[in-house]
Design a protein around this nucleic acid. Structure first.
Lengths: 145, 145
DNA sequence: CGAATAAAAGACAAAAATATCTTTTATTCA
DNA sequence: TGAATAAAAGATATTTTTGTCTTTTATTCG
């Protein structure tokens, strides 16, 4: 098991893919996205539905439809994807799963673990959804396999 | 979902508990441990069996039996618990689950994510199993709820 | 309008993680 | 030796995550 769930892994990859194709106004469909990020098509569909309801991405039905992201949306942080799909437990929860653990009543690992969480939080907030658009479009970066 | 699985959360709590009681030569049993770290007894039993096979903890059957940790074992890093139970994917895996991702062929998040992984790795290696023994024995730190 | 397209939604299936219960094995001690 | 104790091991159940398939709804365009 990696740090993130499959759901979040697929979501980040898909959003990066959609973002890079939203620059030129194109709207990739589920099938194209799933192929290019190497994810199960219908499972990804569910994820994108949730991201769509959460306002992270937009979609249009019918011919020439698909998924896209508003120019403003490209500035949003990656963290919004995680929060939309699984809440903020990964940003705030205790490393050992202790509910009493807090700043005022810390568990053994609290202070050290906080550094890890903060680093993760920082990374996910400072990275924007559209951050890698040009590298992805030129093929310098890829999202499959 | 937190950063670690329930398995790892219970395991870390249980090992800290056992460690703190191994200082004085006592050997808590499954029931006592489960109660004090607030975990399901039989599920924890499976975890401790695996940690025992992995040499992280030791056990003795029969009356006056239970779990304990050798003095030398108290110096081992917390990371050994995670590795024993779930391998080292959490220390090495790509943040977005891309198998091609490596130092020479990095994914978009690679460099930033590496910092998080390194911080996590560092914390788990520099923290020893017996690190909090005195605080746990005096009750300054607790492991339940 | 009606056919084609594509996302949304719903139902279901498989796998993995988590949890519970029972039986077996090893050990102690009277 | 035999009863009691406690971990090991095995079997089963539940829940969550992940994955697949089908039907519905919205949109476009001839």
């Amino acid at each position: 098991m990696g740090l993130f769930s499959k759901t979040c892994e697929y979501a980040m990859r898909a959003v990066f893919y959609i973002a890079s194709h939203s620059a030129d106004g194109s709207r990739p469909g589920i099938k194209e996205i799933a192929e290019n990020i190497n994810s199960p098509e219908h499972f990804l569909a569910k994820i994108l539905q949730k991201l769509s309801k959460g306002g992270i991405i937009s979609s249009i039905k019918g011919p020439n439809g698909g998924f896209y992201i508003e120019p403003n949306g490209l500035k949003r942080p990656l963290a919004d994807i995680i929060t939309c799909l699984e809440g903020d437990e990964i940003f705030t929860g205790c490393g050992m799963g202790l509910s009493y653990c807090s700043e005022s009543n810390p568990c053994p690992l609290h202070n050290e673990f906080k550094k890890v969480r903060n680093q993760l939080t920082h990374m996910l907030y400072k990275t924007s959804i559209g951050e890698f658009n040009s590298e992805l479009l030129t093929g310098a970066l890829t999202l499959n396999k």
